[in-house]
């Protein structure tokens, strides 16, 4: 077994650091401390940390913070950024109003729509 796959109980309490307040994800206000705490509790991948902290789930959908977060997590874990992975990308690329999605594929001939 690759020992890096194994996860065990955290050792001791989380010890806060001086720069814990620094924000990594501005939309959802996720700080370095939030991420460190999640790592301390045993979370490891970008998806796990995203689901726990809402990192990258806000208005910009992670377009600003994903790479910064990945580099930070890699540094904290002492691994290469590639090992941390990226969060699964989600459609749509930009926010789209429900009414636009609802009309997808429906042609309103009277309005001259449709192809």
């Amino acid at each position: 077994m690759a020992e890096s796959n194994r996860r065990k109980a955290p050792e001791g309490e989380y010890v806060p650091k001086a720069d814990d307040d620094l924000l990594i994800c501005r939309c959802e206000e996720v700080s370095q401390g939030d991420i460190r705490r999640a790592l301390h509790q045993g979370l490891r991948t970008m998806n796990e940390i995203k689901r726990e902290t809402r990192l990258g789930m806000g208005l910009c959908q992670g377009q600003t913070c994903t790479r910064i977060a990945r580099a930070f997590i890699a540094r904290e874990l002492g691994v290469a950024p590639g090992e941390v992975g990226l969060p699964t990308p989600r459609t749509p690329a930009r926010p789209v109003p429900m009414t636009v999605i609802a009309r997808d594929g429906i042609m309103d001939e009277a309005a001259g729509e449709g192809i």
Binding site: M57, L59, Q61, T88, R90, T91, P92, P95, V96, P97, M98, T99, I101, A102
Partner: peptide
């Protein structure tokens, strides 16, 4: 979205940000 708007027409302009 069509099903939702049938029950909540006022959600028309609400943005979808993620789907999976």
């Amino acid at each position: 979205c069509r099903a939702i708007l049938d029950y909540f027409p006022w959600m028309e302009r609400t943005n979808v940000v993620r789907a999976w």
